[in-house]
Design a protein around this nucleic acid. Structure first.
Length: 863
RNA sequence: GCCCCCGUGGCGGAAUUGGUAGACGCGCUCGACUCAAAAUCGAGUUCCGCAAGGAGUGCCGGUUCGAGUCCGGCCGGGGGCACCA
């Protein structure tokens, strides 16, 4: 063996061996139990960054560990290859999005291979392959035929310069992030998937995902947003003088229309529904309010210029977080009165209010100022009555409400027949009465919206629909799939190139044969990532997947990725899987049994006094003063990124892998540092020296024949600890276990125990530093690959200590320690502790009041 | 505003059910080897103190024989949602 481990030479050599032998192919032959380990597949943006490396190293350690434990492991890799950056590159660099994407994939695949990941590359695909998205089109049609896809008008963010729809995240301060143009709200016909049909089961299923982080489950729960309550009808009160005009409040700021008769009658607008989660507070009602775009508001505005102006003003209001937070509650009194459902004599004013949202519930509310902060703010502003109807105690029944609404528990007061009931009973009672009397019903409202999947872009999966004037939207016949994106496209003009293509969209209607137009929208790329894990498990040519084979691999046993996908991707994938189950295509309920969200890789930042960001190298060579900034997420704009490739060239894959696993718990951020990677490099070399020494010594040169029982125990404790920590994905702890064992081995005198221990250490380290492990494995004359060797088994007998250290406390303070045989009797321990000089000194001859003995742990003497 | 998580040495972080706080790594100090350096090896490294000893897990209080861990109240940091009725 060489004096030093040379990764430059060894890495490539072992990577070639693994590839040639197909070491990491998932066989699926049923001979071994299966394990499916998956990291979120990357978007081919250009180059691998260090965050990818951390993500894939974690999955890789688990995959290799599972393989050594006798599993048939599926650990695939692919590319989430559709999306905007490719189109931006096309516009900026005049390169075809496909060409740009393919070239990035080639680069990144090469970079990933440098790290020696145990990936089954035979299953690799990119979502931009027609052989992938064609099957996606088929699945879309399956859902379409099952009624889970529909088309409706919806408001979108429209960039008038780029002529494209923008996602909310792409609208910054009301402007398109690329063009800087003021974004318009536009109504477009879009395709939607009925994810709301699954709201209940998606929520319910979270409870059974016990191997998911609580945080992610909670985020999804909030996102789905289930609210139970009462939906009920308000009838508009007929008034002698017609149906009212704006008379009070805000309306004075706006000119009142000279034609005061609002056209509600005969249009189904004589009543409207509201939703509330607090029907118990119904006797605290002091007003009703509708959204500015509620049909009644729009109808009233036809005859009321003041209201029309108010509605227009509401629409202008920004929708950014900051603006909403400070936005004042504003309303417009329509002059209309509505009838309280429990008292026909009780009339409430109807406002149009800026804080009522048309797309939640029914777009209308009843206002109960005493117990809802927004309603209270509103009521105070417009001088509306505030009546307490819930009191935390009988004494507080008449306590006036101040500036804060009371939303806590209590009993109902000032509420006629509800008085004395708890709030919960009140809710039940009012719902029961509403249902019995026919003016409302108990219902559930969700925050979750249906998933709009239409994107007015080129680089995505074409939606397999044809629009025919006679037949409407028609599914493309299956034998015409895949609908392939045209290659001859023009990015010179903004907008969707598919729309402008001279021939692509011109087709005959599959139903009537008449001339028709192909759908030119493409699917949201989140659709692509909603089923790729199924395609990894099984990829026949003529179908999206083979059902039986997919069911044998799924669900994914361990899924690893960034927490930024906690909601959208993970919710969409759960929905898609359930949708496939509902239509009878795949009997899997949840796609990911275990989920792990890893932290980011961060790095220090540097700036010069002018605030210009500097790379770490620039900071070092910079002549003038340099400000050392915070440790932050790596980003190009802050110039604190680290390219993994030169680092792998310098230190080798194993040192990089080891560093990615060290120190920080995997769910937290890891700070990249030069010292850290050097430390890892040193450890790789230490392992090498240890093995080298042992190999060089040969078995004939023992100093003695004696076994080293203490070392044996340490080894077996390490076997148990490393295994448990890898299974728990606590890689930083597994790393610490390996350091401890290495330290112990370096100090241990030569013995057969030590030789065995070094071999065990290499096995334990193999998932983390696989190239070095293979090199050592071969050098010590072992057959085959360590990647396929068995994980050592801890001997339970050696996990038990013979002697234990007992802490001796006086009044809970540590005063002494003593060594006792494992399992020593309470009395023995007590006796030993009381015999301690230090204890005796503190007791000063007085007897102990009490002695607490925790066997094998401590004795606490209470003085 | 609502919901959730986290505060432990110079730094990253360990610490079963409450039971010896600081494992392991980084950094630093001293020493060995060396002409010197790198590499490597040895010793040390929570704070105060020469020591004996004392203090110590953001702060204040509580429960307990015993609290980093449990409870209450603050302070600080991070994340999610965002006028959701």
């Amino acid at each position: 063996m060489a004096a030093r481990f040379n990764p430059l030479e060894a890495d490539a050599r072992w990577q070639k061996v693994w590839e040639e032998q197909g070491t990491f192919h998932a066989s699926g032959d049923g001979a071994r139990p299966r394990a499916y380990v998956l990291e979120m597949f990357p978007y081919p943006s250009g180059r691998i960054h260090i965050g990818h490396v951390r993500n894939y190293v974690m999955g890789d350690v688990l995959a290799r560990y599972k393989r050594m434990n006798g599993f048939d492991v599926l650990h695939p890799m692919g590319w989430d290859a559709f999306g905007m950056p490719a189109e931006n590159a096309a516009m900026e660099k005049k390169v075809h999005p496909g060409e740009w994407t393919r070239s990035n994939i080639d680069t990144m695949r090469g970079q990933l291979k440098l790290l020696g990941f145990a990936i089954d590359w035979t299953r690799e695909f990119a979502t931009c392959d027609p052989s992938y998205y064609g099957h996606e089109q088929a699945l879309f049609l399956d859902l379409f035929e099952a009624g889970l896809v529909y088309r409706k008008q919806s408001e979108v963010n429209w960039d008038p310069v780029d002529m494209t729809v923008l996602a909310n995240e792409q609208v910054i301060d009301g402007r398109g992030w690329r063009s800087g143009a003021l974004v318009e709200r536009r109504k477009l016909s879009q395709w939607f998937l009925r994810i709301t049909d699954f709201a209940d089961e998606l929520l319910d299923g979270l409870g059974r995902l016990d191997q998911w982080p609580d945080k992610v489950r909670l985020m999804q729960e909030n996102w789905i947003g289930k609210s139970q309550g009462l939906r009920f009808r308000f009838d508009i009160s007929p008034s002698p003088s017609g149906e009212g005009v704006g008379g009070w409040g805000m309306s004075q700021l706006y000119p009142t229309s000279p034609t005061p008769t609002p056209p509600l009658k005969g249009r189904g607008l004589e009543s409207f529904e509201v939703f509330t989660t607090r029907p118990d507070t119904i006797f605290g009602a002091s007003f009703a309010a509708i959204a500015p775009d509620h049909p009644i508001a729009l109808a009233l505005a036809e005859g009321n210029g003041g209201l029309a102006a108010f509605i227009a003003e509401c629409k202008q209001g920004g929708t950014t977080a900051a603006e909403l937070e400070t936005a004042e509650k504003k309303g417009f009194d329509t002059g209309i009165r509505v009838i309280h459902p429990l008292d026909p004599e009780w009339k409430l004013p109807l406002y149009v209010a800026n804080f009522v949202l048309m797309d939640y519930g029914t777009g209308a509310i009843f206002g109960c100022p005493a117990h809802d902060q927004r309603d209270l703010d509103f009521a105070r502003k417009y001088g509306l009555p505030v009546t307490r109807v819930v009191a935390p105690s009988p004494e507080e029944a008449e306590e006036p409400i101040g500036d804060e609404a009371y939303s806590g528990p209590g009993r109902l007061v000032n509420s006629r027949f509800l008085d004395g009931l708890t709030a919960e009973d009140g809710i039940r009672e009012v719902i029961a009465r509403a249902e019995a009397d026919g003016w409302g019903e108990g219902t559930t409202v969700w925050r979750l919206r249906d998933w709009g999947v239409s994107r007015q872009r080129y680089w995505g999966t074409p939606i397999p629909i044809v629009h025919c004037e006679a037949c409407g939207p028609v599914a493309v016949p299956r034998d015409q799939l895949p609908i392939v994106l045209p290659e001859d496209i023009d990015f010179e003009t903004p907008g969707n190139p598919l729309d402008r293509h001279p021939t692509w969209s011109k087709v005959d209607c599959p139903e009537c044969g008449g001339s028709a137009r192909r759908e030119t929208d493409t699917l949201d790329t989140f659709v692509d990532s909603s089923w790729y894990f199924i395609r990894f498990a099984s990829q026949p040519g003529d179908a999206p997947f083979d059902r039986a084979e997919a069911e044998r691999w799924l669900p994914v046993d361990q899924y690893i990725g960034g927490v930024e996908h906690a909601i959208l991707h993970l919710l969409y994938a759960r929905f898609w899987t359930r949708a496939l189950q509902r239509i009878g295509k795949l009997d899997v309920v949840e796609p990911f049994r275990g989920l792990f969200t890893q932290g980011m890789v961060t790095h220090v930042t540097f700036q010069d006094p002018q605030g210009k960001w500097l790379t770490p190298e620039e900071a070092e060579s910079h002549g003038g003063p340099v400000i050392r900034g915070r440790v932050e997420k790596m980003s190009k704009s802050k110039r604190n990124t680290v390219d993994p490739e030169p680092i792998v060239d310098q230190y080798g894959a194993d040192a990089v892998r080891w560093f990615m696993l060290s120190d920080s718990p995997p769910e937290r951020d890891l700070e990249w540092s030069e010292a850290g990677i050097q430390g890892s490099w040193r450890f790789v070399q230490r392992l090498w020296r240890l093995a080298d020494e042992e190999a060089g010594r040969g078995s004939s040169t023992w100093l003695g024949d004696g076994e080293d029982a203490a070392l044996d125990r340490k080894v077996h404790r390490a076997i148990a600890a490393v295994g448990a920590n890898i299974e728990a994905l606590a890689f930083n702890k597994a790393v610490a276990n390996l350091y401890e064992l290495t330290n112990a081995l370096e100090k241990a005198p030569a013995s057969p125990s030590r030789s065995r221990a070094v071999e065990t250490l290499i096995r334990l380290a193999a998932p983390m530093v696989p190239h070095l492990a293979e090199e050592v494995w071969a050098a010590i004359g072992q057959e085959g690959l360590i990647a396929q060797a068995e994980w050592p088994v801890a001997d339970p007998a050696l996990l038990v200590e013979e002697e234990v250290t007992i802490a001796v406390q006086v009044n809970g303070k540590l005063r002494d320690t003593l060594t006792a045989p494992k399992g020593a009797a309470r009395e023995t321990l007590e006796e030993m502790a009381l015999a301690s000089e230090k204890v005796a000194r503190i007791l000063e001859g007085k007897p102990a009041r009490k002695v607490i003995v925790v066997p094998d742990r401590l004795v606490n003497v209470v003085a």
